[in-house]
């Protein structure tokens, strides 16, 4: 009896998600296969032949992957350090590191515009110390989008990595060293494989977040479209909901694919993770 009633606790959440998420998604996906009342793949065929769209798709993928990669590189040392300090310092550092998530992405993006703009702080500084002669063109490029996204998503990877690093038995690292491993060897053969669960979750969060981000690329990317700004443009400016639905479906499929691939890589590195 108890076992059966306990499932009732799931009901409100499940109902909510079904009505407001599952059904709309299925309807959206379903609608993409109908063109003026008849079933067809035409919408998709059209888009995969469109060089402009493929360009946007590839840029978005590249931006997301680079962002994920940079987040891992920057996040790992930070997470490792935070996982080793005392409880009070840890709480403080954790708060500091999730701070970007607590500020509005509009505010954050405008701050970056001030920093990396043509007459921005960064260019002025570099010009004044004579490192460059012409102002750098960073704003309104994929690089600007990457900078903004890294700033936004770095906390996610730090938090998930702290989770696994905190639980890692210190003796395992010492054991590896006593068997002859260098610091680098310990990292590659023990720390990295054992961090895989956190690394995968963190990477997926960052990737999916970057892939679907709207505000940051819209403000920092300028004319450089990414897939979500493209979708927005189709839906609202051009009022082409059919195209928007197709783009949305493509986004969902790619997100799923990348998630699966990342899981596969993780399994290769640490089959027990």
């Amino acid at each position: 009896m108890r076992n059966r009633t306990i499932y009732l606790l799931l009901l409100p959440g499940a109902l909510f998600l079904t009505i407001f998420m599952v059904i709309p998604i299925l309807l959206t996906i379903g609608s993409t296969f109908f063109n003026e009342g008849s079933f067809s793949f035409e919408g998709y065929l059209h888009y995969f032949q469109d060089k402009y769209f493929i360009g946007i798709l590839l840029t978005t993928l590249r931006v997301s992957l680079v962002t994920t990669f940079i987040c891992i590189l920057l996040g790992f040392p930070v997470a490792y350090y935070i996982s080793k300090v005392g409880t009070r310092t840890k709480v403080l550092l954790l708060l500091l590191s999730i701070f970007p998530l607590l500020t509005s992405s509009v505010v954050r993006s405008f701050s970056w515009m001030i920093i990396i703009g043509k007459n921005g702080v960064l260019n002025k500084l570099l010009l004044s110390i004579g490192l460059i002669e012409e102002p750098l063109n960073i704003l309104y490029t994929p690089t600007a989008i990457i900078i903004g996204l890294v700033h936004l998503f770095l906390p996610l990877i730090i938090i998930t990595l702290i989770g696994v690093l905190e639980n890692m038995d210190e003796d395992l690292l010492t054991a590896a060293e006593s068997l002859g491993a260098s610091r680098l060897g310990v990292f590659a053969k023990v720390v990295l494989p054992l961090s895989m669960p956190g690394l995968v979750i963190g990477s997926i969060l960052v990737f999916v977040g970057s892939f679907t981000a709207y505000t940051t690329p819209a403000l920092l990317g300028g004319k450089q479209r990414v897939i979500s700004t493209f979708l927005y443009q189709n839906a609202t400016t051009l009022n082409d909901w059919h195209t928007a639905a197709i783009v949305a479906t493509i986004m969902i499929v790619i997100t799923l694919l990348v998630t699966i691939i990342m899981n596969q890589i993780a399994y290769k590195i640490n089959p027990k993770g």
Partner: peptide, 20 residues
Amino acid sequence: VPVNKRNFGFVFQNYALFPH
């Protein structure tokens, strides 16, 4: 001499086997 150059075998209380 650092740990990894000593060639001493160490057996830990909690075994410290690599779980992966």
